[in-house]
């Protein structure tokens, strides 16, 4: 019997989009209101898991051709390199800086070095969550 997943697929398309946008919002909002790398990352991961659950693995692999182990390394590297930033100014490892800049269109914006660090965390969290779940799911032996 072939099951028709039309409902699920349609809803997933919309919901995933919302979840992913919200996860990016959470990530950027993290410094000033609840959110941040961990939460944003987990949110994005659960959105993607939803995609994987409702469609099948092969389809999504075609859409998202990422190698998650490489992503883990990338994320770690970003976080690590942000840490060396402090050394350039003679401060301890992982010292973070911030300042306010006047940018066109956006107006006054706070830029922090904590953001790329959090981005590293974000990438690592997304990658490991998906890596663990996909590894188990793909195991067919």
């Amino acid at each position: 019997m072939k099951t028709n997943y039309l409902m699920l697929h349609t809803i997933t398309r919309i919901v995933t989009f919302i979840i992913l946008s919200f996860s990016i919002y959470l990530f950027f909002a993290g410094h000033n209101s609840p959110g941040g790398g961990f939460i944003g990352g987990l949110m994005m991961a659960s959105g993607l898991i939803l995609l994987y659950l409702s469609f099948d693995l092969k389809t999504i692999k075609r859409v998202l051709p990422f190698d998650y182990s490489t992503l883990i390394a990338t994320g770690l590297l970003i976080a690590l390199l942000t840490g060396f930033n402090g050394l350039l100014f003679g401060d301890p490892f992982l010292t973070q800086y911030f300042d306010y800049f006047e940018l066109p269109i956006l107006g006054e914006v706070e830029l922090t070095t904590a953001l790329p660090f959090d981005l590293g965390v974000f990438i690592v969290v997304v990658a490991i969550t998906l890596l663990i779940i996909l590894t188990i799911a793909e195991d067919d032996s």
Binding site: H31, N32, G35, G36, L80, A127, L131
Partner: peptide, 29 residues
Amino acid sequence: GGYNMVNVILVDFRGMDTLLEVLVLSIAA
């Protein structure tokens, strides 16, 4: 430079802990 204290602690004051934490996660994965 942040209003969310928990997040500031995680990424700034105790950044090293967080770095090692994601490292642990990566090792587990």
